[in-house]
Computed example of a mutant assay.
Amino acid sequence: MDIIKGSFRITILTIVLICITAFAGCVDNSKETSGDISGNSDVISVTDNFGREIVVPSDVKSVLCSGSGCMRYLVYLQSQDLAVGVDSIEKEWREIEGRPYALVHREKLYELPLFGEYRGKDDPEKVIDISPDLVFKTGSTGTSYGTSGAEADTLSAKTGIPVVAFPYGSLKNQAEKDEFYSGLRLMGKVLGKDERAEEVISYIEDIMADLKSRTKGIPEDEFKRVYVGGVSSAGAHGIISTEPAYPPFLWVNADNVASGLGSAHVDVAKEAIIDWDPDYIFIDVSTIQMENSGAIGQLKNDPALKGLTAKKTGNVYGVLPYNFYNANYETVFSDAYFIGKILYPERFSDINPEEKADEIYTFFVGEPVLDELNSQFNNTGFSKIDI
Rank of each mutant, 00 (worst) to 15 (best):
L17G: 15
V200W: 01
A254I: 06
G69E: 02
A150I: 12
L171K: 01
D133P: 09
T313N: 13
A152V: 09
T331V: 15
V200L: 13
V285K: 04
A152Y: 00
M208I: 14
S232A: 13
D206P: 00
P162W: 04
Q376C: 05
K212F: 04
V104L: 08
A157S: 14
V56Q: 04
G146D: 11
Y118I: 09
A152T: 09
I239E: 01
T143D: 01
Y203P: 00
D206Q: 12
W93K: 13
G318H: 05
A269I: 01
N323K: 10
D28I: 08
D302C: 11
T380S: 08
E125S: 11
E90M: 14
V63H: 02
G183V: 02
L171H: 07
D133E: 13
D358Q: 11
D36T: 15
L305W: 05
F338P: 04
G340I: 05
M208G: 08
E271Y: 10
A234P: 06
Y322R: 01
L155T: 01
I161W: 07
E97Q: 12
S79M: 04
N352Y: 07
S38N: 14
K224E: 14
P113V: 14
E291T: 10
T380A: 09
D129F: 08
L373W: 02
G116K: 04
V228L: 10
P368G: 10
L184I: 00
K312T: 11
K306C: 04
T331L: 03
I283R: 03
A269W: 03
F115K: 04
Y344E: 04
G120S: 08
E53P: 00
S68T: 14
A272H: 12
E199R: 10
N328K: 12
V285C: 04
I274C: 09
L305P: 02
S263G: 08
F249V: 02
I207H: 02
P162M: 11
